[in-house]
């Protein structure tokens, strides 16, 4: 689904990713773990196309398309969803208006008909219920006045509504208490499917207790330095990043 080959990227002239290669197939869940500063969030932003993250070499192919040549919204319409580590507050724009506008913009780009108001609300209610989100909260401006946990649930909620093909989840587990962690993990597990892919970016093992990955990769100094099964995450938890880097 997603094939990244020898990816190099810089931020403000400083090279961060230095030849990252990684491939996630359909139906798979991969986890990227790594110490702070390894380039985990940079990878997420580069894949989603954020300005200021300059690709200096390598390729990323998503569902047969050159991901790096696409505008951010085209990547979204193609099915790539980035769950932000720090979801952005947008005063004055209600959550529901935002989401419906986004959903229809994606569908338009894909040549699909717009979703009616009633159909949209039906999806919203179902998803909100699954995540334990208050409908009133969804009418508030995007992420405004939300607690850290509420913001992460809101990211999961958006993923549920937009139904992407591939979820790129940046530190989705940070700032969550154990109940919220379970709710978010459940939504990821519900999202899993034979034609979908997930790339979890995380610092800790604890999310992987709830979402069992097929593959685990260790990112250090801008490259994947080791790959393995779920047991790699456990080993990492026990030994720390120091042992891996050494």
């Amino acid at each position: 689904m997603l094939a990244i080959t020898d990816l190099h990227a810089s931020v403000g002239g400083t090279p961060i990713l230095k030849g990252l290669t990684l491939s996630v197939g359909a139906g798979e869940v991969h986890a990227i773990m790594g110490p702070n500063g390894a380039g985990k969030s940079t990878l997420a932003h580069v894949l989603a196309g954020r300005e200021g993250y300059e690709v200096t070499g390598g390729t990323a192919v998503f569902l047969g398309q050159d991901l790096l040549a696409m505008a951010p919204h085209e990547r979204a319409a193609a099915g790539l969803f980035l769950g932000f580590q720090y979801p952005v507050e947008i005063p004055g724009v209600s959550n529901l208006l935002f989401l419906r506008t986004a959903l229809n913009a994606q569908r338009k780009l894909r040549g699909e008909p717009e979703v009616s108001g009633a159909e949209f609300l039906k999806r919203v209610r179902a998803e909100a219920q699954a995540l334990g989100l208050d409908m009133e909260m969804l009418k508030r401006p995007v992420n405004m006045g939300f607690s850290g946990g509420e913001k992460k649930r809101n990211e999961a909620f958006q993923m549920g509504i937009l139904q992407p093909r591939f979820a790129l989840l940046d530190e989705t587990d940070s700032g969550l208490d154990i109940d919220a962690l379970k709710v978010v993990a459940d939504s990821i597990n519900r999202f899993r499917g034979p034609d979908r892919g997930v790339l979890l970016i995380t610092h800790y093992q604890r999310l992987l207790d709830h979402v069992r990955p097929d593959r685990v990769h260790i990112l250090a100094a801008g490259r994947i330095v080791e790959s393995g099964g779920p047991e790699l995450a456990l080993r990492l938890e026990a030994q720390g990043y120091g042992a891996i880097a050494a």
């Binding site: 989603a48 951010p72 919204h73 979204a76 969803f81 952005v88 947008i90 724009v93 935002f98 913009a105």
Partner: peptide, 17 residues
Amino acid sequence: FYLESRGLPRPEARALL
């Protein structure tokens, strides 16, 4: 960027903001 990452083309994202 947040709006674009959710699928809004840039002019629409600007207009909405």
